[in-house]
């Protein structure tokens, strides 16, 4: 396991300066290379704080965080973490750097020291898959809220990082844009990229390999999305709400119309009901 372990948290706690209590506490977590993991939990449960340890934006106040087996406390570790992990933040304003869309997307690839042709190719690919193809020359201040969020995503994927962390980065996308982005993420995942999705919308975790639930800064649960959907009162306790389709699925299972082994997916449910 260790050789393909991209991120390893060992007893990590983090307390913000002047804060009374830790925002995350006693986190032990391994993320394998190529895994797609979802981080769930209420507002303030510590999701963003945990995420910021992955690229050494925060260093544990207790315990250690390793990226590619480098401790993020050391200079090597910080460098390794920043190269391996790209973050898309909750608020795109916090990470848009340049004044013009395409320049902003080029910023990451330029920092990687790629050739001008490669930079151009990456920028145009990233803008395209993010649905900003026609806006390359637009100034950033003239973008709508959702367009800014798309730009933040484009900037991160243009770096083709080994690991991409999306911290509630789809909140402002229209439904079609959200679907398109899920496709893009799936493709990147198939290509071997490690993905960490932080979201309140559980329909977005259907394709994840594994999810963890944070509550009060601690990991309360760890398992597959399907296992999560089968839980009872715990879900409400953690402030999680399953998607509408999953609710229908659960009711049909309870009424004895569907077997629990049929997954809560539209195609499978229709097929089972017609049998």
């Amino acid at each position: 396991m260790t050789e393909n372990c991209l991120v390893r948290f060992s007893g990590v706690s983090y307390t913000y300066p002047e804060a009374a209590a830790p925002a995350i506490a006693d986190i032990d977590l391994k993320i394998a290379s190529g895994e797609w993991i979802a981080v769930l939990g209420c507002n303030g449960s510590g999701k963003s704080t945990l995420a910021k340890h992955l690229n050494a934006l925060l260093i544990p106040t207790q315990g250690d965080c390793f990226v590619n087996e480098f401790n993020t406390r050391g200079e090597d570790g910080k460098r390794s973490a920043r190269r391996a992990v790209s973050m898309v933040f909750q608020n795109p304003e916090n990470q848009i750097i340049a004044a013009v869309v395409e320049e902003d997307v080029a910023f990451g690839p330029e920092n990687l020291g790629l050739s001008p042709e490669e930079i151009r190719a990456r920028v145009s690919w990233a803008l395209d898959v993010s649905g900003l193809g026609k806006m390359a020359r637009k100034p950033v201040y003239a973008l709508s809220g959702g367009q800014k969020q798309r730009l933040a995503v484009a900037g991160a994927i243009a770096q083709k990082p080994p690991c991409l962390v999306m911290d509630e980065a789809t909140t402002m996308l229209d439904p079609r844009g959200r679907q398109d982005l899920m496709e893009v993420l799936s493709t990147l995942h198939s290509g071997g990229m490690t993905l960490v999705s932080i979201t309140h919308r559980l329909e977005e975790i259907l394709r994840c390999d594994r999810c963890i639930v944070l509550s009060g800064g601690r990991i309360s649960w760890n398992g597959t999305p399907r296992e999560l959907f089968l839980l009872g009162e715990e879900l409400a306790m953690w402030g999680l709400e399953v998607p509408g389709m999953v609710k229908v699925w659960r009711e049909l299972v309870q009424k004895g119309l569907l077997e629990a082994k049929i997954p809560p997916l539209m195609g499978e449910m229709v097929e089972a009901l017609c049998r």
């Binding site: 229209d174 439904p175 079609r176 389709m245 229908v248 539209m266 009901l273």
Partner: peptide, 15 residues
């Protein structure tokens, strides 16, 4: 443009 029919409505439609 940009909108989709809610999943559950699509499900009901297929049924």
């Amino acid at each position: 443009r940009g909108l989709v029919i809610p999943d559950m409505v699509r499900f009901a439609g297929r049924l």
